[in-house]
Design a binder for these strands. Structure first.
Lengths: 148, 148
DNA sequence: ATGAAAGTGAGATTGATTCTCACTTTGGGA
DNA sequence: TCCCAAAGTGAGAATCAATCTCACTTTCAT
C-alpha cells in the first residue's frame, strides 16, 4: 500500500564504511557529495528529495549518523542552532575553515603544536583532544571581495 | 498574589556590564561564580534555586544571555546536547581547556599563530575568526590520575 | 514620589533531533 | 533460486533545550 518505489542503488556506499546498500543511502551519500561546502541536515534532505522524492527526514538523519560514525561526515560548526555538516575524506589529522560567504569548507593543518602542548604541560594540564573551527573567506570569495 | 519575595541584592552585577540590578541577577551571578568549572544552564538553575528558591529557569537563561553579551560568560563546548558554560573574566584573547574529569576550565593561550594564518593565506584563504576548545585533564586531576 | 522601561515567573511554544512501530528491502546461506 | 533474520525505512509522535508570551513587579532617572 506504500507509494515507496524502488530506486536503483548506486555505488558510493563508501561513505558509510559498513552497513547494507539501500537506494536511499546511496542517494543521500551522492547528494552529500554533491553539496558545495557545509550544509545542514534539512538542506541535505531537500537536496535528496529534489532528486528522489519520498525519502524521509529521519532516514537522512540516520544516514548522517552513519557517515559520522564512519568518519566521512563531520560537524564543522553550527548555523542557527543546526549542526553544520561537511563531507570529509581527508585522512590525516586536520581541521576546517568554513567560508562565511559561500559555505565552502577547506581542510587546514592542525595548529596545535608542541608549543601549545608544552605550555599546557607547564601548568600541569594534559591535553588529550581538541576541537577547532576556523571561519573566514575561501580563496574564491576572498578574490571576489578584494578589489586590488 | 505572587509568592515572590524580595531578596537582598548583592553587588557583583559586574558580570552583566549593563542593565538593572535585580536580586535575581545578583544571585545568578554569584552562583555562576561559585560554580567550579564548566556548567550547564540547568545546573546553574539548580545552584541558584538551592539558595534562592523561586527564581525561574527563563530568568536564568536571560541572565546567561546577558552575561554572554557582556563577554563574562562563554560557551566552552557542549555536554549531552546542552551548551557548556563557564565564567571567564580573563581579558586577552585565549581559549579554554575543559577537564574531562572534573569539569574545571583553565585558560590557554591561543595556538593560532602566524604559521597557521600564513598557511591559509598561501592557499588564498583568509581566516577572520576561530573557535577552539581543548579537552584533557587539569593539573589536579592529572596528578591524581598519574601514579608516578 | 512617579512612571516608563526593564526584569520576572509560569507556562506555552519552537524547532532540531530522536524514537516508535509497522512495513519493506537486503543479502548470506540452504 | 528461495528464505528469512536482520537492517533499513516512512510517517508521525516524542524529546527537550532554549525561547517567547503575557500579566505582574521592581528599578531608577527625573
Amino acid at each position: 500500500m506504500s507509494s515507496r518505489r524502488t530506486i536503483r542503488s548506486t555505488e558510493p556506499m563508501a561513505l558509510y564504511g559498513r552497513g547494507r546498500v539501500s537506494a536511499q543511502r546511496a542517494a543521500i551519500a551522492k547528494a552529500a557529495e554533491a553539496m558545495s561546502g557545509a550544509f545542514v541536515a534539512e538542506e541535505l534532505h531537500r537536496a535528496v528529495t529534489s532528486v528522489e522524492p519520498g525519502i524521509g527526514l529521519a532516514t537522512v538523519y540516520r544516514a548522517i549518523s552513519a557517515m559520522q560514525s564512519a568518519g566521512t561526515l563531520v560537524t564543522v560548526g553550527e548555523r542557527d542552532g543546526c549542526a553544520l555538516l561537511a563531507i570529509c575524506v581527508r585522512g590525516d589529522h586536520h581541521h576546517h575553515l568554513v567560508c562565511t560567504e559561500c559555505g565552502a569548507v577547506v581542510g587546514i593543518d592542525c595548529p596545535i603544536d608542541e608549543t601549545t602542548m608544552r605550555a599546557a604541560a607547564r601548568e600541569g594540564h594534559l591535553v588529550t583532544s581538541h576541537q577547532i573551527v576556523l571561519y573566514g573567506l575561501c580563496a574564491r570569495c576572498r578574490a571576489r571581495t578584494e578589489n586590488t
